[in-house]
Design a protein around this nucleic acid. Sequence first.
DNA 1: CTTTGTGAATTCGTTCACAGCA
DNA 2: TGCTGTGAACGAATTCACAAAG
Lengths: 208, 208
Amino acid sequence: MNLEKIPEKKIERLIIYRKLLNNLKYEGKSNIFSHKLAELADVTPAQVRRDLMGIHYTGSPANGYDVDELEKSIGLFLDSSSGISLAIVGLGKLGRSLLDYCYWRCLNLSKIVAFDVNESIINQTIYDCKIYHVNDIEKVIKKEEITIAILTVPQEEAQQIADKIVAAGVKGILNYSPVIIHLPEGIIVENLDMMLVLEKVFYFAGNN
Amino acid sequence: MNLEKIPEKKIERLIIYRKLLNNLKYEGKSNIFSHKLAELADVTPAQVRRDLMGIHYTGSPANGYDVDELEKSIGLFLDSSSGISLAIVGLGKLGRSLLDYCYWRCLNLSKIVAFDVNESIINQTIYDCKIYHVNDIEKVIKKEEITIAILTVPQEEAQQIADKIVAAGVKGILNYSPVIIHLPEGIIVENLDMMLVLEKVFYFAGNN
DNA sequence: CTTTGTGAATTCGTTCACAGCA
DNA sequence: TGCTGTGAACGAATTCACAAAG
């Protein structure tokens, strides 16, 4: 990997491009110009070109970008070589919903496990995803070598669960609990409080 | 309202500050310094001060900021004077989960309605939220004067539903469907594809 | 002292504009 | 001609650093 800093925004856009390219492939398109991809992704053509510059993929003025090749190049850039093993902590409505998404639409997942406290679902298996009791979380995460976790747990428990699983080896957390969790330098946390996003829409739709 | 442009990032942070202040209030704290608020929000003290400058709230070097007053000031700045009327379109697991959140944790919601295609829940009322058939969506949105909508519908339907509800008067959409929807200038759209966020965590946790 | 409020400096991200190419 | 790739210009957002205040 190169050492230049890759800004988060650029990564977000690359992920979007990849998905759009994948759709285009199934629509039978074989190439696309920056202005068209820009339109689909809701960004400017110059930005598309800059972003692709960042991953050293080059197109041609005549045909733009090759859909298939570009998708692969982005994949090469984004995906870690080893597959991802994921845990979903908390299988309420939101957790179940995320499990569905992951099963149907995920990518290079090599393993997925879930945790809950509801005795009636523990030890069940949904979509190859075994459900464990939260009490066993450290043990299972170590044994299964889980590196990423999604948290959909009550806010009182989010921080302590996060601390536990990080101690057990988790490197990245996507936190849907409505609290900001704090973790040591080097651990990736994305706090995604759905009500805060909604409030943002309220603001911009109300005051513009 | 003032006419200077308010950047999205600043609004996001103000929303976070407000929430933290609300927590602090219930913990009995009456004032707070910028560095402490910064720590809780995971930003720098200078940024907190800048952000508050933007809403013209001023503290004192001796006591920092008054928790209660600052929360009110942010509210005054963020909240539209009229209450919000919200629609949730699609009551699958994710939609139901969002309805729960809205009911328990929402703010200045004056009205909430939902839409689905599942006959078995149509005409039911959950938490004062009446469930209508999607076929009636334009009529109901007009009648109830809904201005904001959350979309949790299959991706094939997202764009056309969005077009319909915007025609019926909706000004802002929070779109959880896994497609980017495009709407006319002036309509606020927040596309929030949960899998894309997850991929971002994969990237940063895998490559750093 | 410690902390706020803020102009100035800096860093970061985006867009412009054009050379080079098919 | 119409597009890409990219240096340069621009603009936005963040941080620095210090005067003012208790």
